[in-house]
Design a protein around this nucleic acid. Sequence first.
DNA 1: GCTTAAACGGACGATATTCTCCGGTATGGT
DNA 2: ACCATACCGGAGAATATCGTCCGTTTAAGC
Lengths: 183, 183
Amino acid sequence: MSRAPRKDGIANREKILVAALRTLQRDVTAPMAVVAQEAGVGAGTLYRHFRDRNDLLAALQVRSISMVLALVEEILSRDLSGIDAVHEFLVRTVRHGPDLFLSYHGAPKTSDPEYLRLEKGVWDGVHEFVVHGIADGTLRADLTAHDVIIFGSLIAVPLPGVDDWPAVAGRQIDLFLAAARAG
Amino acid sequence: MSRAPRKDGIANREKILVAALRTLQRDVTAPMAVVAQEAGVGAGTLYRHFRDRNDLLAALQVRSISMVLALVEEILSRDLSGIDAVHEFLVRTVRHGPDLFLSYHGAPKTSDPEYLRLEKGVWDGVHEFVVHGIADGTLRADLTAHDVIIFGSLIAVPLPGVDDWPAVAGRQIDLFLAAARAG
DNA sequence: GCTTAAACGGACGATATTCTCCGGTATGGT
DNA sequence: ACCATACCGGAGAATATCGTCCGTTTAAGC
């Protein structure tokens, strides 16, 4: 039998992910040694948890997309009108911005199959919002899930140098919804 | 008296900028040696034209923003309605995408004063579009230059992994304009 | 408690990147 | 044509980063 995982191992993995997020969001080229230091662990520990730099970047992306998927499913479980669902999706994506690390931060998009699977889940969920919204008459008939996902991806990551991104993104969301609304 | 600049010097500087654009757009972390090779010059030549890596990145950003400013001024010189001017600005910004290298590519935003001066010029020009458009009744009264510039910045750089960005961005522009239109 | 496997830290070898230096070459001025 | 000088290429010293190894520490199972 294999033993139960050690709690210091689990805690360190978590500390590394948190530190890597903060550090690499600010600068994708930050050396691994800096990530390790920020996490308060040795370099060896970092490399034991993540085979190499790419593995760490992939883990951050998987973690991010799974957060987005969770959010999509939570919205689906409520029974909102189409336009409210899209609004919630966009607002909450922006709100999660600080916890997300996606390819737009300059890292190459991972080809991890787990990532692709989760990404497809997000796609399907948003598709459901949109179809429902067209049926219930709250969204214009030619709106697509593609439109919403592209826009969401654009505002998910703060534009460098812009203060108060939530407010700025909120304004862009309002404009987008004005265009997406039926009629 | 100083001599006229040598033409091989001027040509090499240009070759370096073109190669750096292509190479660093694809991967901001590409080593200087790769840029030099792509440009077909030696490393020494590269460093003679650009003090160091940051200087090269700054030069690319200055070049980019000045292209955008040129475009803004060209639009101002014509006498378009407000909404047409905004449309032109957005479409042409996307069309220039492949020639642009801005901080959203992962490089830190330069603090070069020349860059900031040009950026302000872009701001002022777009402000003029918008004020004019509100006055002529083609743009909604609460639209701001800020709204347009933020949106333009978002779509200027292709989202990684998206095919046919011009088409996708074009669709986002249509949605934006639907929201920006008066009435 | 005691044993044992799992996890840790940080020094270290291998590799990659940056930037400099200098012998040689092409160009502008006369 | 010839000189003076601005420019070139690429080897290589200095530095930075990656990823591994191993003696030590910590936690799980009994």
